[in-house]
Design a protein around this nucleic acid. Structure first.
Length: 631
DNA sequence: ATAGGGTTAG
């Protein structure tokens, strides 16, 4: 609409040849409109008019024109305008550097920077802050340091924004200590300086630093600084996590309201903070509070919808997530890659496979199906929905470039489907492709070995990963080994392994052993493992239940009663596990020995027959054939 | 005009 009227003005003025209408300020306004609407054709029309009228040497107009071409992703034309301009000032050079950076042409930006020197133009603080940012984006610590030195020598380091950009650069290049040093030496700081430090603390992401970050934020408040939207959004992202220090999500929300920061997303259309709030509430299991924020947003862009959908998914409300996913499209917001990745876990069960396939088809139509992160989510979805073959198809055909997650998702898919050989085979293939195994894929393949009884394979894979790939063994990896040997009844091997483990065995280790010894009826190992387990986790009801179950199988009812009494004394209650199945959108759930279902008699009868069939299957009769008889 | 913040997969 705006741009249409701009063109109308242009046509009218051309006809009337009224030159006063084209005084420079008007042209800059028109160019500003074409920047805001990112319209290349308007920019080109304005450009030709400007040349016709001989206004292309006007520095205001040239600047806007260069910016306009950059925002229309036409850097070549920006450069043409720049080159044709005769009296270039540093302002114009800076525009060029930034324009290239906005188009991710960082190399060009750096070229312009050195060209500036050759032309005898002195870069100013604007130039330096941009260049430093670019070096940060490139992770170029070497040049970052040398430019820092130059900033010190020519004095621009005293500029607050240059200081902030230097800090950010060091943070992105892994030099957080250097970043703190710059902060300490800054003569003038603003809130952003503090924000950069906070962001640095967060990207280092070590548990120890959490405490220091907390202290830093407290000091910031103590010195009288006020959080701005950037500060709050970063702190909010720490709140959903299970770390004890950061349960301040609600307080931060209050801060937002008190300090008028809510206007950003309720009055204006900057929904950034709103998204952070939705995410924080979702991660704190308070998705309904997030929904209230969502409903109040002035403008719901794809980020907002995705954050809300992801919130419902995280909290297990898959139906509501799917409702919102449809609604966002009805309201004309196009889901992006992240939206699709977020909704996919809502389709991770057999009864939702159809929905998952629809998402897959949708992504293919939008040309997103080769995106590696989306492929990985699809592999996981298909695997959890029971379709190993579809998972494999995505892995082979859609997933053109495979990353560590692609391989590990596919390995886990085989594991989940009880195909240990398939998992091991794929893992080996991954190594042949020159992919370095990480702790997660190793856990995936080891759990596959445990499920399929591939004990020797498992041990071989473990020591190869540790010795040849310098992989630090994790507790989870070790638990897999113990689980694997235990399930195969090789308790000596399991116990030997526990002795040589590089870390203290935790509940997961003893739990695996308790489980395995219960299966094999090995009461000696069971007693040993159980003693450790109870000592470590006296409050976990599952531990007592497993003990009681073990003694129940050997009809030691006296011990069973004793365990139950202990549990009662300690006030522990175990909620029984349950299975469910959805038939025609109705969900039926079953507990152990549950006879409450109206069709209970028929169901148990079928179950007995199936068990019989499976037993017969052991003797070479095909299970599928037997089932067919019952259908 | 320059710096700092958002949704995602094993």
């Amino acid at each position: 609409m705006i741009i249409l009227s701009a063109i109308k003005i242009l046509k009218f003025s051309t006809k009337t040849k009224c030159l006063s209408t084209f005084s420079p300020p008007n042209f800059t306004n028109l160019l500003q409109l074409s920047i805001e609407s990112q319209s290349l054709t308007t920019t080109q029309k304005l450009h030709s008019k400007i040349i016709q009228l001989g206004l292309h040497q006007n520095s205001f107009i040239a600047t806007k024109l260069i910016s306009a071409y950059f925002t229309c992703q036409n850097p070549v034309d920006s450069r043409r305008v720049f080159d044709a301009f005769e009296h270039k000032n540093e302002f114009l050079w800076n525009i060029l550097i930034n324009g290239y950076a906005k188009n991710a042409l960082f190399g060009e930006s750096l070229n312009v920077f050195s060209q500036m020197f050759r032309c005898g133009v002195v870069p100013d603080e604007f130039t330096y802050s941009s260049i430093v940012k670019i070096l940060g984006e490139l992770g170029d610590l070497v040049n970052g340091r040398s430019v820092h030195g130059r900033c010190v020598r020519n004095g621009v380091v005293l500029d607050c924004v240059v200081g902030n950009s230097l800090m950010a650069m060091y943070g992105k290049c892994g030099g957080f200590q250097d970043s703190l040093k710059v902060f300490d030496e800054m003569p003038y700081r603003n809130v952003s300086s503090f924000n950069v430090v906070i962001s640095g603390y967060m990207s280092v992401k070590e548990g120890v630093l959490d405490e220091k970050l907390w202290d830093f934020v407290k000091d910031m408040l103590f010195e009288g600084w006020e959080f701005d939207a950037f500060t709050v959004s970063m702190l909010l992202s720490l709140c959903g996590e299970v770390k004890k220090n950061w349960c301040y999500g609600k307080e931060l929300h209050c801060y937002i309201v008190r300090n008028g920061l809510e206007d950003d997303f309720v009055v204006s259309s900057d929904v950034h903070l709103g998204c952070c709030l939705i995410d924080m509430y979702a991660k704190s299991s308070r998705v309904e509070f997030g929904r209230r924020v969502f409903d109040r947003l002035k403008r719901r862009n794809v980020f907002a919808w995705t954050a809300m959908i992801n919130g419902y998914v995280l909290n297990g409300d898959f139906d509501e997530a799917l409702v919102l996913f449809r609604q966002m499209q009805v309201e004309g917001v196009e889901p992006n890659k992240v939206s699709l990745i977020s909704i996919l876990p809502a389709c991770c069960s057999f009864d939702r496979l159809k929905g998952g396939k629809q998402i897959h088809a949708f992504s293919t139509r939008r040309g997103l199906n080769h995106e590696v992160s989306l492929c990985n989510a699809l592999i996981d979805m298909y695997s959890k929905s029971g379709s190993l073959s579809c998972a494999r198809r995505v892995f082979e055909h859609d997933c053109v470039t495979k990353d560590a997650i692609s391989w590990s998702s596919m390995v886990s898919a085989y594991s989940l489907h009880g195909n240990g050989r398939g998992a091991v085979g794929l893992y080996e293939k991954m190594l042949q492709h020159g992919m370095k195994p990480d702790r997660i894929v190793v856990v995936g393949v080891l759990s596959a070995c445990a499920r399929s009884g591939l004990v020797d394979e498992g041990f071989r894979i473990y020591s190869f990963a540790v010795n040849e790939y310098d992989l630090e063994p994790t507790l989870e990896m070790c638990a897999c080994i113990v689980d694997m040997s235990g399930k195969a009844g090789q308790f000596d091997r399991a116990l030997d392994f526990i002795k040589t483990m590089p870390m203290q065995p935790g509940p997961s280790i003893w739990g695996a052993l308790v489980n395995a010894s219960a299966i094999h009826g090995n009461s000696e190992v069971h007693d040993l493992a159980y003693r450790f387990l109870i000592q470590m986790e006296p409050e976990n009801p599952s531990n007592y239940v497993s003990l009681s179950n073990l003694y129940a199988t050997s009809q030691r009812w006296d011990v069973v009663a004793e365990v139950r009494t202990t549990m009662k004394d300690r006030g522990l209650k175990k909620f029984p596990g349950c299975s469910w199945i959805s038939i025609n959108t109705e969900t039926h759930s079953f507990y152990v020995a549950d006879k409450s279902h109206p069709c209970s008699v028929v169901i148990y009868d079928m179950l007995d027959q199936l068990i019989l069939a499976m037993k017969r299957d052991d003797n070479g009769v095909r299970f599928e054939d037997t089932v067919k008889v019952y259908e």
